[in-house]
Design a protein around this nucleic acid. Structure first.
Lengths: 218, 218
DNA sequence: GCTTTGTCGGGCAAATTGCCCGTTGATCTC
DNA sequence: GAGATCAACGGGCAATTTGCCCGACAAAGC
């Protein structure tokens, strides 16, 4: 950048949050917000247009999800530096975002300094997690219910999530291009692995494990 | 107030959002933030201390929920003017908040002017809803979801709740001293009445309708 | 009176589950 | 590089559950 400042693309659908960003970042002489977006598509377009040094992104966006948007941006530019800034304290969300290519993950309940530090970390290519998420991820490893979760293969996990979200086995079979029978078998394995014996138990488990966001259903 | 300004208590657990509020409200000569709180308890204490003209409150707070906090404040001072400002676009949340005593409900995706207008409305004792919520509530009245809920008989309702909580049909049959077959038939009727065709859909529906409290399960 | 409505259950074909199996291909190991 | 392991896939089939029908009975409404 000619200015020597770190250029930032902000992605958040809440006006008040963008207002907060501007107020906060304006005080920082080395940071400059060069563009904003309110959903995943806009974010991608703005990214293409400006190629900012750092993209700060919320995960709950209207339409295309934050995780999908991260993946899209990373596909275009694998060196894109993306910092997730979200209200979700669920370590699974963090894991998903990082897998999709985010370099950092900070929760909105963090103090402003944590965000500012994270921006600099991410700009320098360093991975960064806010303390609450780091702790949650560490604690999650020790819980016994998560033992079950980790025994699931990625395919099982995927199918479990789709089922818990309410997709039918046929829909899943179609979207994944596999037979309904495989979905059914996989479902059976998942239920025995997580120790439930009904669809309803499965949904409860998925909710307790925060695999699905019940407020975003339909 | 001696200042002649509208005094405001801000309740939100996200630092960036409070930052946004300050930046936004600072531009308004007639509004003044006199206190902030990051959870329900603090909100109540600050309310007692300052008795602000208007309390702006998020619903998702750590610990005690926003709705409970509203009720507590209203219990102390029934004339308290509370404006809910939250990300939740679910009209059921709005209905709950209003029942608890909130005077207004604005979503965080609303433009800043909507929030500012709402503050003035609430200060003047007028009920106010952001357009998206007003529309959703209006639609909900006519929507067949609540119609379905009201078409259920008390027995069906009871069985639906037990099922959604994860009880098996045999357990329900035993506790209600009826045959499992009757539970099954009832279940069938309920599903057709509420318009779902799977156990999972039923749980989702029950959650959306707040029939069960998922965080209180086991 | 008579009709409606809620609760209760039987019956039975169709669909689904529970649990087994084998095949493939990738990765790991010795 | 031969052999073991394991994820992903899907077939088979008995046992269960479902979807959707039916009728019985009692209470409430006109």
């Amino acid at each position: 950048m000619v200015t020597g400042k770190i250029s930032i693309l902000l992605v958040d659908d809440h006006a008040i949050v963008r207002e907060g960003y501007r107020a906060l970042l304006k005080k920082q002489p080395d940071l400059e917000v060069i563009a904003e977006a309110i959903d995943g598509n806009q974010a991608y377009q703005q990214y293409k247009l400006h190629t900012p040094d750092v993209t700060i992104m919320d995960l709950s966006l209207p339409g295309q999800s934050g995780v999908e948007t991260i993946a899209r941006i990373k596909q275009r530019n694998p060196r894109a530096k993306i910092l997730v800034f979200t209200m979700h304290q669920n370590p699974r969300f963090a894991a998903q975002a990082i897998n999709a290519g985010a370099l950092g993950y900070v929760t909105k309940s963090s103090p402003p300094e944590v965000l500012l530090n994270a921006i600099h970390d991410v700009y320098s290519g360093r991975r960064t997690l806010s303390p609450d998420i780091a702790q949650a991820l560490a604690l999650e490893k020790t819980g016994h219910e998560t033992a079950a979760l980790e025994s699931l293969t990625s395919r099982e996990f995927e199918i479990l999530r789709l089922l818990a979200e309410g997709k039918s086995k046929e829909e899943i079979a179609q979207t994944l291009s596999i037979s309904a029978k495989t979905v059914s078998n996989c479902y059976y394995l998942v239920k025995s692995k997580i120790g439930v014996n009904s669809d309803i138990g499965l949904v409860h488990w998925a909710i307790k494990m925060r695999l699905i966001d019940i407020y975003r259903l339909k």
